[in-house]
Nucleic acid binder design. Structure first.
Lengths: 145, 145
DNA sequence: CCTCGAATGCAACCAGGTTGCGTCTGGTGG
DNA sequence: CCACCAGACGCAACCTGGTTGCATTCGAGG
């Protein structure tokens, strides 16, 4: 069991603000996401959890993630490998992602962008803009040659 | 069997330019994609094919699509529903997509955007920029109320 | 301490996509 | 025009990320 750490407290606080049930699964998932430096897949979350001695049930994990997304605490992005990856929602308007062609990992890029909205056909209701840079991450670029 | 139509000719011509084997499956898939007004999923291609009386084998279809992507004739985008959708690659530098939150359909938006690249961390090698607008397409917006 | 709706865990299930392998065929050299 | 063969095709089995149904447990308000 993870002792009260800053990230544990932060996770708990975020959940309390929502007035939602504080369950161990929610706290742990949020904690892991807050501590990660890149978006985490379902699989990597399961591994991280079982590495620390208490595995999640996979269904619980899916449901916690769905719930966190619905609460707006976390957002999910589906990469080209068809795997969903999750990262905490930081309150910034539009932010870009970097998706690695080799390992598939997904990073959030800081820095707001001038968003010249593309022309939208009549009748379409735009809602949100996603910008993704594809390429190779530092690790993969370094390891290949 | 589809008679020689403009789209059939266009498809054949594109394949010939590549110096690749002209097989019926390739011609038909490319033809369907060229005729479509939105990106097509594997499923919708299969349906379109069997509606016209000669269904594709699903594996063949996957392989044809992979091949077309590898040839640079077609590009694929994975939506939030984890389904890949394919559309012919028109030779324009950067182009944006519109993904419908409701029906999941994906449209190509015309109009190039002058875009300031977001800051990329050290060591990362950017390659391509994807811009996707999320929202509701005209059909879904109209049908809901 | 009790109660109840919400959260959890298990097992079975589903869909998109992939692999292995034997058969067929487009296109080329003879 | 024919024979040949790499590459394309078709079938079946398989893999993986994700979902559903249902019985059990738990958090938190009374």
């Amino acid at each position: 069991m993870l002792p009260p750490t800053p990230s544990h407290d932060q996770a708990t606080r975020l959940l309390q603000q929502r007035g939602a049930s504080i369950t161990p699964a929610r706290v742990r998932v949020l904690q892991l996401l807050l501590a990660a430096d890149a978006a985490m897949s379902h699989q990597s979350l399961q591994q991280a959890a079982s590495a620390s001695g208490q595995p999640f049930d996979k269904v619980t994990l899916y449901r916690v993630l769905d719930w966190l997304v619905a609460q707006g605490l976390v957002h999910s992005v589906t990469g080209h490998d068809r795997v969903r990856r999750f990262s905490p929602m930081h309150a910034h308007a539009t932010h870009a992602h970097f998706e690695c062609n080799d390992c598939g990992r997904l990073f959030c890029l800081r820095g707001t962008l001038p968003f010249a909205r593309p022309e939208i056909p009549k009748g379409f209701q735009p809602d949100r803009l996603d910008i993704t840079v594809h390429g190779r991450c530092a690790d993969c670029a370094a390891s290949s040659h």
